[in-house]
């Protein structure tokens, strides 16, 4: 592969990771959605670039699905839910920028330390792509743990899925079935999450997960 192809793929993957960092410290739900959209766009570009540079046309479909679902439909739908439930003014506690950087950098270091030694015989692009995507997955997990609001948890969950797609497009010749199903499952997952959000809204008049978690099934 040419140097340009390598550099471009590397850069786009890094942008996806950068957006994961940015997701961590967004305190307002709308800005959270905007950053998520940017991440989805970066992922679309990555998938399209891999499709072009490796000559794997089925990755264009992955790119298209990511673009339509994650960069357009899901943010729009979540936007409407937020407005409808009047939680757009919510400022929720998120990690501070400094803490985010420390936690994020240590997770990225961890994934590089984990991935690079075991992939000694793979190509440089595969290795670095894997390290990047593992970092995105771990940052998504961190986000799900550190957030209390249901909408931000959904966004965290979807950023984990972004990391998975990043890994899948980087694996040479990975059969399409899996990518399609990932995209599909994200959609289904989103629908269910949506149903959940509405039910939770009906029942509790709040999306604060801390309050819901106080409803223990068992009263002891």
């Amino acid at each position: 592969m040419s140097d340009l192809g390598y550099d471009a793929a590397h850069m786009l993957g890094a942008v996806v990771l950068l957006m994961s960092f940015a997701l961590l410290y967004q305190r307002r739900l709308f800005s959270l959605l905007n950053v998520f959209t940017m991440q989805a766009l970066a992922l679309t570009a990555t998938a399209a670039w891999q499709a072009y540079s490796h000559g794997e046309p089925h990755l264009y479909i992955t790119a298209l699905l990511t673009l339509v679902l994650k960069a357009i439909l899901i943010p729009v739908a979540l936007h409407r839910i937020i407005v409808k439930m009047k939680i757009h003014r919510t400022i929720e506690p998120a990690l501070g920028i400094g803490l985010t950087m420390v936690a994020g950098v240590s997770l990225v270091t961890l994934s590089i330390l984990l991935v690079l030694p075991v992939t000694a015989d793979a190509t440089a692009l595969t290795r670095e792509n894997l390290a990047l995507s593992l970092s995105v997955v771990l940052l998504g997990l961190l986000m799900m743990i550190s957030r209390r609001n249901a909408v931000s948890q959904v966004v965290g969950f979807m950023s984990i899925e972004n990391g998975l797609i990043l890994a899948a497009v980087g694996a040479a010749g990975m059969p399409l079935v899996v990518e399609m199903s990932v995209a599909f499952s994200v959609m289904v997952a989103f629908i269910i999450f949506g149903i959940f959000l509405f039910h939770i809204r009906e029942r509790f008049d709040t999306l604060d997960m801390q309050k819901i978690e106080s409803f223990r099934g068992e009263s002891d």
Binding site: A122, V137, F157, A171, V178
Partner: peptide, 12 residues
């Protein structure tokens, strides 16, 4: 999600 990551690694 983690299982899918493992599956992708297995393919790799």
């Amino acid at each position: 999600a983690l299982a899918l990551f493992g599956t992708i690694l297995m393919y790799m």
